[in-house]
Amino acid sequence: MTKSRSKQLVICVDNEGYAASLEKRKIYVALRDPVAEKLDMLRIVDESGEDYLYPKTFFREIALPLAVKRAVLAA
């Protein structure tokens, strides 16, 4: 349960300068990173399958029903 709490689903609303790594309107997994949060960044698992820091303003949190969130995280 703590594993899913440390992951958040966000949607990309901007990818300026990162078009090869991020797709607009796509759902991404954001990993909890207190240091990144202090810098107004999010740690995102991007198109490469690796996690990198991106500006927080590029994303918006999305709320999904728990069953849907679990399915998305499991995919």
Rank of each mutant, 00 (worst) to 15 (best):
K3P: 04
R5S: 15
K7P: 08
Q8W: 08
Q8Y: 09
Q8V: 09
Q8G: 08
L9T: 13
C12F: 01
C12E: 05
V13E: 09
V13I: 15
V13M: 09
D14L: 06
D14P: 01
G17Q: 10
G17F: 05
Y18M: 07
Y18G: 06
A19S: 15
A19K: 15
A20T: 14
L22N: 04
E23A: 12
E23Q: 14
K24Y: 08
K24M: 12
R25L: 12
R25Q: 14
I27N: 10
Y28I: 05
V29D: 03
A30T: 02
A30I: 04
R32V: 06
D33G: 04
D33H: 04
P34E: 15
P34S: 11
L39C: 11
D40E: 07
D40A: 07
M41I: 02
M41Q: 08
I44V: 07
V45Y: 01
D46P: 00
D46I: 00
D46F: 00
E47H: 09
E47I: 08
E47S: 12
S48R: 06
G49A: 05
G49N: 03
G49W: 00
G49L: 03
G49Y: 02
E50S: 13
E50A: 14
D51W: 04
Y52S: 12
Y52L: 09
L53P: 01
L53R: 09
Y54K: 02
P55F: 00
P55L: 02
K56V: 02
K56P: 00
T57Y: 04
T57I: 08
F59M: 01
R60F: 07
R60I: 08
I62G: 01
A63R: 07
L64N: 04
L64W: 05
P65D: 08
L66N: 15
L66C: 11
A67P: 06
A67Y: 14
V68I: 14
K69W: 04
K69S: 13
K69M: 10
R70S: 15
R70P: 04
A71L: 09
V72P: 03
A75P: 02
A75S: 14
A75Q: 10
A75Y: 12
